[in-house]
């Protein structure tokens, strides 16, 4: 039986990155179409706790590797271990969520396996041995259906396109394997976390984003976000100007989000921004310029000054709760 191997991601704080659960869904979808078994890989200094969290629906086995060298993620250290496991299992597909780690690691794994790779996969098509991948090109202006012709096929899955896997039947077993460790020419120096009490952008149910129209004043954006329990996002211009941290950037080159509700305030809607949010369920745009392209993708557009209407909106939403 063919094998789909999904690589789990442990965050620097030790927790499982939630996008892993979406990647497992992607893996399960692929396994069903390809008539394959779904296996997971987890590399960690101490994988014992997270391995249990990974015994989710449809997973045949969780392969764990434990070593002190695996504490801080490095592509050069992780790639030979994953590639070794792929060869040992004779896996046909290996994939991961399109996170920063997924995008850094998977091509190096693919290179080691002389395999072709599809990035940001949104859907799988076909059945049996005849599988193709749907992925975005040109900032999401084009969807391409691609076929990989190498024996092993590598992919990263866009987390927002697949639901998070949940408990269900914990059929899988945890199997330890000995990692194939190689000396690394790269040293981990440090990781500086940008801390926030708000939900993670890519995981939030509601996102409130600000653009150039805020002139760098994010107080009202943040206040509305807190009223809604939302994450704060930003356009590229705002991040480039250094007004808000880089990791708030929503767009083709930033984060791709698809929340239930996306509120864009003072954002004109450059192609590059739209590529990062147009899969959101409901989009609200607030902008002074009635011609702003953001209105073309918005379900509800309000032509107004954000500094005037954001406080009104916050109060109105607050009243709904009472």
């Amino acid at each position: 039986m063919p094998i789909v191997l999904i690589v789990a991601e442990q965050q620097p704080d030790g927790h499982l990155r939630k996008a892993t659960l979406n990647a497992i869904s992607a893996g399960r979808t692929l396994a069903e179409k390809a008539g394959a078994e779904l296996h997971l890989a987890l590399l960690s200094k101490d994988p014992s706790k997270l391995a249990e969290e990974l015994k989710v629906q449809g997973v045949k086995a969780v392969h764990t590797a434990a070593a002190p060298e695996l504490e801080h993620y490095l592509a050069e250290v992780y790639a030979p271990v994953i590639a070794g496991l792929v060869q040992e299992l004779k896996a046909d597909y290996v994939g991961m969520a399109s996170t920063a780690m997924g995008k850094d690691l998977m091509p190096r794994v693919a290179a080691r396996l002389k395999a072709a790779m599809a990035t940001d996969v949104m859907a799988f098509n076909g059945s049996g041995a005849d599988i193709s991948f749907t992925r975005p090109m040109w900032a999401g202006n084009v969807f391409a259906e691609v076929k990989l012709t190498t024996p092993v096929k590598v992919f990263s899955a866009r987390a927002t396109e697949f639901p998070a896997s949940t408990g269900g039947q914990p059929a899988g077993e945890v199997k330890a394997f000995t990692p194939k460790l190689e000396a690394s020419k790269t040293k981990f120096v440090d990781f500086k976390e940008v801390k926030s009490a708000r939900p993670e952008l890519t995981e939030a149910r509601v996102v409130v984003s600000g653009g150039r129209g805020t002139k760098g004043d994010f107080k009202e954006i943040e206040a509305l976000a807190d009223e809604l329990g939302a994450a704060v996002g930003a356009s590229r211009a705002v991040c480039d100007a250094g007004w808000v941290p880089n990791d708030l950037q929503v767009g083709q080159t930033g984060k791709v989000v698809a929340p239930q509700l996306y509120i864009a305030a003072g954002i004109s809607g450059a192609i590059q921004h739209l590529a990062g949010m147009k899969s959101s369920k409901t989009i609200v745009a607030i902008n002074k310029d009635p011609e702003a392209p953001i209105f073309q993708v918005a379900d509800y557009g309000l032509v107004a000054d954000l500094f005037k209407v954001l406080p009104e909106l916050r109060e109105a939403l607050h009243k709904l709760k009472e």
């Binding site: 599809a118 084009v142 076929k147 989009i283 209105f295 918005a298 557009g301």
Partner: peptide, 19 residues
């Protein structure tokens, strides 16, 4: 080793309204 079988435009969002 990568064959592009087909390209398509993303499905358009249904037209929204101004409030």
């Amino acid at each position: 080793k990568i064959q592009v079988l087909k390209m398509s435009s993303p499905p358009p969002r249904k037209a929204g309204i101004k409030v």
